[in-house]
Simulated scan of single mutants.
Amino acid sequence: MGIVLGDNRYGKAEIRMVHVARSGAHELADLNVSVALAGDLAGTHLRGDNSNVLPTDTQKNTVYAFAAERGVGEIEDFALRLARHFVSSQPAIARAWVAIEEYPWRRLGPHSFARDGGSVRTARAVVDGDSEWVLSGVRELVLMNTTNSEFHGYVVDRYTTLPPTTDRILATEVSAAWRHGGTTVDFGQSYVDAVARMTDAFVGTYSLALQQTLYAMGGAVLADAGIVEARLVLPNKHHFLVDTAPFGLDNPAAVYHADDRPYGRIEGTVTREDTVDAPLAWDGYAL
């Protein structure tokens, strides 16, 4: 039985970069950039022939150079510039993925900032010949409703010990990404609007299941006509009511134990009915 080379890619992962735009009040971009390239690379795998290999160190330097030359701007646009460059400048490269995480800083003054510690903005650009896709997203968005959540009517078998409830804390740490229908987008405003609509949907949904809340949040993202698909992962951050009876105390749904594991993990995709699938846009992407 013969052995053949399958799908492969290579690149520079987690290029940490801070860019300061110094005109007027300083603007800070704190990024983690990852690049992956694919194409005519069989030679390096099969024979150690590196004639088609752009070194990963060069890829790192390209990220720095692009930021130095033209700044960063919206991270989706920066990812697109990089991905287009790698495909257009390297004849052997047919496909490029560029993924970016942007860490939040809160402004304290014209040139002073505090690390926010809030949610992380994400972006991904994929360029494959004449086709281009852009994903925007967010992770570490922690949300909680202290009521308006129930869970009952589920399957019960011999191993079930969980009691049904008509009032519980619902908390999650959202990881979400959404695909744009084009690349000419005001990505900054689109991101702000998508996160706001998704958050409002979490707040405003009387939840009978976290799956129901996920669908409402995904649908809210698609309220932007330019967004064609949204994928979400919602871990269920469990909060269990503490039994204070042994202390001779009542606990009227006031004191909870926050349990970090094990946890439920709810995943889902919400799309428009006429959306054309774009597997390359999500290839290798993990929420």
Rank of each mutant, 00 (worst) to 15 (best):
M1P: 12
G6R: 06
Y10G: 08
G11W: 04
G11R: 12
M17R: 15
H19A: 07
V20S: 03
E27P: 03
N32R: 14
N32M: 09
V33L: 02
D40L: 11
L41I: 01
L46S: 13
G48Q: 00
G48Y: 00
G48V: 02
N50L: 05
S51I: 02
P55Y: 04
P55R: 00
Q59W: 01
N61T: 12
N61E: 12
T62R: 14
V63E: 03
V63N: 06
A68H: 12
V72W: 00
E76C: 07
L82H: 06
S88K: 10
Q90P: 14
P91K: 04
V98W: 12
A99N: 13
Y103S: 03
P104R: 03
H111W: 13
F113R: 07
A114D: 15
D116R: 09
V120W: 08
R121E: 01
A125D: 05
S131T: 12
W133N: 09
V134W: 09
L135S: 02
S136W: 15
G137I: 00
V142W: 05
T146P: 05
T146S: 03
N148R: 14
F151R: 08
F151G: 04
F151W: 15
V156C: 07
V156S: 00
R158N: 08
R158K: 12
T161V: 15
L162Y: 10
P163R: 06
T166I: 10
A171S: 09
H180M: 09
H180W: 14
V185M: 14
S190W: 06
V192Y: 01
V195E: 02
F202W: 09
F202G: 02
F202E: 07
V203M: 11
T205L: 01
T205H: 09
T205M: 04
S207C: 04
T213F: 14
T213D: 04
G219T: 10
A220T: 03
L222A: 13
L222Q: 15
V228Y: 11
L232T: 04
V233D: 09
V242S: 09
A245S: 12
P246F: 10
G248I: 11
L249Q: 06
D250W: 03
H257F: 15
P262G: 12
Y263M: 15
G264I: 01
D277H: 07
P279W: 05
L280Q: 14
W282P: 05
G284V: 03
A286R: 11
L287A: 11
